[in-house]
């Protein structure tokens, strides 16, 4: 039970830590100043959520690892984020489509976590995150609609982004021993139960965006068990270089 809880909290933290790092790459490179600030703001919220979940994961593990130990001193095989969040940013359309797919999922997951009362600390972090992600989801979905229902060029490109990312969405709803055990304890939702409401929410957005939901053509998995795309190691190398070169550095 404790091990499963630690694993479940790590997944929650890793998803948002890795996505925050990816979004942070846009800082200074956004297509417009406002968007640059928006992506950095979203990254900051996600980083805050990651800190809270990783701190709690360390506490529940009971081996004295804090948020920094978990973020900076684990290897790629020890990270359990979904593959979707580690994919390279691509163009702005790729980034915003990935964000939209993730935000709608994160919102449902956080709502379920905030509704349970088995673990008060988990529900407190989730309740706070719900407010933040609601704002992100509004932003990313508005962009998907604007680009999808925009020019023929923007429509074509964001549809391509959606097609490319689609096979990575199935993993978000894939249950295993960890999620099944946590669901049995009433602590976390069975991910499969979130898939239908997620599809309905995405359907609404895509309809308004005049985009077509791709056919299901296989699902990329592996992230939850530490089997990642080659992109994660490069991301970690950049994220971890300072604390690994100068352990305990302060400024």
């Amino acid at each position: 039970m404790e091990n499963h809880l630690h694993a479940g909290l790590l997944r929650l933290g890793d998803d948002v830590l890795i996505l925050a790092q990816r979004l942070g790459e846009w800082c200074g490179h956004g297509p417009a100043l406002e968007e640059d600030i928006a992506l950095s703001n979203v990254a900051l919220d996600l980083l805050g959520q990651a800190r809270a979940f990783l701190t709690l994961a360390g506490e529940r593990e009971g081996n004295g690892r804090d948020e920094d130990a978990l973020a900076y001193f684990r290897t790629d095989r020890e990270f359990t984020n979904a593959l979707l969040v580690e994919l390279p940013n691509g163009d702005f359309g790729d980034t915003i489509m990935r964000q939209c797919l993730f935000d709608q999922f994160a919102l449902l997951r956080y709502e379920a976590l905030s509704a349970q009362s088995i673990d008060k600390e988990v529900s407190a972090i989730a309740a706070k995150a719900v407010k933040e992600v609601r704002y992100h989801a509004e932003h990313s979905s508005q962009w998907v609609i604007r680009l999808g229902d925009g020019t023929s060029e923007s429509h074509h490109r964001i549809q391509k982004s959606l097609n490319r990312l689609w096979s990575y969405t199935g993993e978000l709803f894939a249950d295993d021993a960890v999620t099944e055990s946590l669901a049995a304890d009433g602590l976390m939702p069975l991910l499969a139960n979130l898939q239908k409401p997620w599809q309905e929410a995405m359907n609404q957005i895509l309809l308004e965006a005049t985009l077509v939901m791709p056919e299901n053509s296989g699902t990329q998995t592996g992230g939850r068990s530490g089997l990642h795309t080659e992109h994660l190691s490069y991301l970690l190398a950049e994220m971890q270089v300072l604390p690994r070169t100068y352990p305990g550095a302060q400024w």
């Binding site: 968007e35 600030i37 928006a38 704002y135």
Partner: peptide, 12 residues
């Protein structure tokens, strides 16, 4: 102008 402003708590 933008849903996100100079700090996390503000919009522009």
């Amino acid at each position: 102008i933008s849903a996100f402003g100079s700090t996390a708590c503000k919009a522009h």
